[in-house]
Design a protein around this nucleic acid. Structure first.
Length: 426
RNA sequence: GGAGAGGUGGCUGAGUGGUCGAAAGCGGCGGUCUUGAAAACCGUUGAGGGUUUAUCCCCUCCCAGGGUUCGAAUCCCUGCUUCUCCGCCA
């Protein structure tokens, strides 16, 4: 959510900044509601003040043993007037909230203009696209012989699911271990385990709701729970409604969770293979930081995700997303794209964003500034480190051999119980 | 699933429906004292919003949402949640 104060004082400026990312702000409606809000709030508060002072008077008169009936008669009509005013104010505030909850974050000044991924800008490259002296297969052809099975999952559930059997399943798990161990052991994150089902308030806090309900799996039971689309939701919401002391800052959390996405509206895209699944594993890094530190944090957190790719020897490039391609809640986002020989393309494997106070304002997540002694909204920064399924794809395709076997990257050996090469199981 | 008891400021913990935004203690901050520190003593110390140049002033908030009342932390209803006992269970 944007700062309501900013919207009041610089509505046109905000509208201008939002237009950079292709969002049209209904300035007229907001200005109108704001005008009404002001009038009715003042009126409501005046009525409340009158009620309070008169009630106080009644209490005092009663204490002295005086007859309070005339005083009661005098306030008879006040209650209805007040109730009507409060109701009116409530309605306006709800309308305002509804609009505000649907307005995306402002892009940071360093974010390039642009409307879609064509306008993203490459920042750097690491490694060279892998070259083979044979014809490279994609992960589906490779995985088929190694225990990756989409047909089985289609029987169990439906499309966009997979089963993995054998050493390849272990490799999948080994990746998670490597990522978590690296982030906790070398990058200073605290590992955490969190619920995979969350309530609406949590999803509202990080920005998935109310606008992107169709992207989520809803558990249609009495609880009103949703499957998490990313660990970002439960981990970030741990600080919802909290005031964090300065000594505890910054908070750095890493968590491995499954992620569930309905992928509504992407029916034709990436239908082959495990690039786009309804269920996938991800290791997520989340930091809650002092407002002045968040852009520096975005750089270091992104480097932590890069580190994993480097350890695994996977070629990648780092992109800064243009304003139009960024997610709803982000001020600035870097995507890491890994080289996939099977597609002869770089594909997203990590997305690292600074949300500034956008999420914390929704969550009322604050930090006590020692200089002022007052609570201030903290900043949230997060990123994937990494998407596990896509990392498995990258390993299959980049480490494939002419005979269809796949070498296990050195860094994973210690997690693989001596297995250094995956070979056909059939 | 059954029975019972709770949810109050950074923390502990009081609070006959009427100056209660809330006693007291701890913690924090400022000061006195001290060579310095501790102790002791004095003062101060929640959040959000409206109005204002600013102060003043006003409103809201005692888990959340409704209700009763001139007036609710206090009474009623619903939900969430914590604890204890029983049952079940990985």
């Amino acid at each position: 959510m944007l700062d309501p104060h900013l919207l009041r004082t610089d509505l046109d400026g905000i509208a201008q900044q939002l237009s950079v990312r292709g969002f049209t702000l209904d300035s007229a409606r907001i200005a109108d509601l704001e005008r009404q809000r002001k009038i009715i709030q003042v009126e409501t508060q005046a009525l409340q003040a009158e009620r309070n002072s008169r009630s106080k008077g009644i209490g005092q008169a009663k204490a002295k043993g005086e007859d309070v009936q005339p005083l009661l008669d005098a306030v008879a009509s006040l209650g209805d007037k007040l109730k009507a005013a409060e109701q009116q104010l409530h309605v306006i505030q709800e309308q305002m909230d509804e609009i505000l909850l649907g307005v995306p974050n402002l892009p940071h000044e360093s974010v390039p203009a642009g409307v879609n991924e064509e306008d993203n800008i490459e920042i750097s490259r690491w490694g060279e696209p892998t070259i083979f002296d044979f014809e490279a297969k994609d992960h589906v052809d490779l995985g088929e012989k190694l225990g990756l099975d989409f047909e089985s999952a289609a029987k169990l559930t439906g499309s966009r699911f997979m089963t993995i059997v054998g050493p390849l399943a272990r490799l999948h798990r080994a990746l998670i271990q490597l990522m978590l161990d690296t982030h906790t052991g070398e990058h200073g994150y605290t590992e955490c385990y969190v619920p995979y089902l969350v309530n609406r308030d949590s999803l509202k806090g990080t920005g998935q709701l109310p606008k992107f309900e169709e992207d989520l799996f809803y558990i249609g039971d009495d609880h009103g729970y949703y499957l998490i689309p990313t660990a970002e939701v439960p981990v970030t919401n741990m600080v919802r409604g909290e005031i964090i002391s300065d000594e505890q800052m910054p908070l750095r959390y890493a968590a491995h969770t499954p992620c569930f996405r309905s992928e509504a509206g992407s029916y034709g895209r990436d239908t082959r293979g495990m690039i786009r699944q309804h269920q996938f594993e991800k290791v997520e890094m989340v930091q809650m930081v002092r407002p002045g530190d968040s852009y520096e944090t975005l750089e270091t957190l992104t480097s932590h995700a890069e580190k994993i790719l480097q350890i695994l020897g996977l070629p990648y490039r780092k992109m800064v997303l243009c304003a139009g391609d960024m997610g709803f809640s982000a001020s600035k986002t870097y995507d890491l794209e890994v080289w996939l020989p099977g597609q002869s393309a770089y594909r997203e494997i990590s997305s690292c964003s600074n949300f500034e106070a956008f999420q914390s304002r929704r969550m009322k997540a604050r930090w006590r500034n020692p200089e002022t002694g007052k609570p201030e909204l903290l900043h949230t920064v997060n990123g994937s480190g990494l998407a596990v399924g896509r990392t498995l794809v990258a390993i299959l395709e980049n480490y494939q051999q002419a005979d269809g076997s796949v070498m296990v990257p050195e860094a994973l050996h210690r997690y693989m119980g001596g297995v250094e090469r995956l070979t056909a199981t059939t």
